[in-house]
Write a protein that binds this DNA or RNA. Structure first.
Lengths: 233, 233
DNA sequence: AGAATTATTATGTGCATACATAAAATCAGC
DNA sequence: GCTGATTTTATGTATGCACATAATAATTCT
């Protein structure tokens, strides 16, 4: 039963995945330890380690010291979403990107915003509304609040030509963020901009990014009916 | 400039991230090569390699052989979505999970389904409609098609008690899949089940899973207004 | 000059070894 | 029996070395 020698970690990964797939190792099962697998495959333990670590990262294996490695019984599917800059998302599918700044002003935001950003309700923020176009048709409507106290240069940023997201990525550091996806219906004010009817279903993404303990920006983007966010599993 | 010695890869990662963050290394910049960093940090090159690989995986660094490693100029944000089984999603936030099988029958699916699953339009599939409940209130409405030719045991599966997803995870292997998220409005037929009004905005997830070249199952899940899918960035 | 060839270089990987660490399993003491 | 200390063990990681590979840079040839 000395199968072909598996020298590289990707082959080891493939073989382990195969065994899981054909149910040699069933959900919940404990699989042999790294040392045994290494000697079976004819490679170093570190190679097996790399392969198993990679699989574990995808959620298909559970690894715990001393307890060993077992096949996840409820493999929490983990999908990695790439969230590119709007321009790349559009140009990536061969369409022409367009950008249109609708408004830009410094205002006191609604309490919902200042609360989410953990600011006092009377802090003024830079408010930006913009439309992203694909082949000259509405692709997404952006509604963004930026704290100029955290991002000093914003007030002079050339946001007529470059989207706020792109400018911020280049100019404002951040440490972490949160994203939420949901659905809503088109308001009468937004519908014409998105080229849809009032009441039409819109896909919404909301992002809040932080630099340490300070909120940098909060953005809500509305996508017209038909938009899908897709990813591989 | 012999800072504190950084021995482990997580410290190295933290330090590299810090330098990116404080713009020592700006978007687009080429950073020193692994060997140099290793000697600066006082650790082995493989340790630096591990750290940089990890950062690159998150999208913040671009690495190419010979060309070197540079800070991504448009850091494509990569969010990892965990898509647990519905029961765990609900119990995970401390609510009581409930499951209710609405209907189960073998039918010829609409062409949209059979096309997506790459089947001939006259193949009969198992059709399941079910409601997931959180604290006895509607949480999600599931509409699923399963190819019994690919999953032999399904026709006898006890889908009154266990959700199809859980049963399939335990009993039907798959190799890969696709997910799409979108928005729609509640149909008159679905609204009462979801406890919302007709025309209310619904969040939709659609999943299609494959076992090699054969489609296993396709599911469309509707979430009532207010539902958000969240993740960290 | 332009094309084809060769050298150089940074990352990618494999391996053997050593030690660290978490957690299960066992044992000691009451 | 139960509790707490101790041992065992599987994974986690660091290291130095070697070689593979991709892609750029330099060189040679026509």
């Amino acid at each position: 039963m000395t199968g072909p020698v598996l020298r590289d970690w990707q082959s080891v990964r493939a073989e382990v995945l195969r065994r899981i797939h054909v149910r040699d190792w069933k959900p919940g099962d404990l699989i042999p330890n790294e040392a045994d697998l290494a000697s079976e495959f004819g490679c170093a333990r570190s190679t097996v380690n790399r392969a198993l670590r990679d699989i574990a990262q995808s959620g298909l294996l559970d690894r715990r010291r001393k307890a060993g490695t077992r096949v996840a019984s409820n493999p929490v599917a983990r999908a990695t979403l790439s969230i590119p800059v709007m321009r790349e998302e559009i140009e990536g599918v061969g369409r022409k990107y367009g950008y249109q700044l609708l408004s830009r002003s410094t205002e006191i935001p609604p309490v919902a915003e200042s609360a989410a950003m953990q600011l006092t309700p009377d802090d003024a923020l830079l408010h930006i509304r913009a439309l992203h176009l694909a082949d000259d048709r509405p692709f997404a409507l952006e509604n963004r609040w930026i704290d100029p106290g955290v991002v000093p240069g914003v007030t002079d940023a050339p946001l007529e030509n470059i989207s706020a997201n792109e400018w911020l990525l280049q100019n404002a550091p951040y440490t972490h963020g949160e994203i939420a996806f949901s659905a809503t219906v088109a308001q009468a004010s937004d519908a014409p901009l998105l080229g849809c009817d009032t009441g039409a279903p819109l896909f919404v993404t909301e992002r809040l990014t932080w630099d340490g303990t300070r909120a940098v920006t909060r953005v809500r983007i509305l996508f017209p009916p038909g938009y899908q966010m897709r990813t591989a599993l």
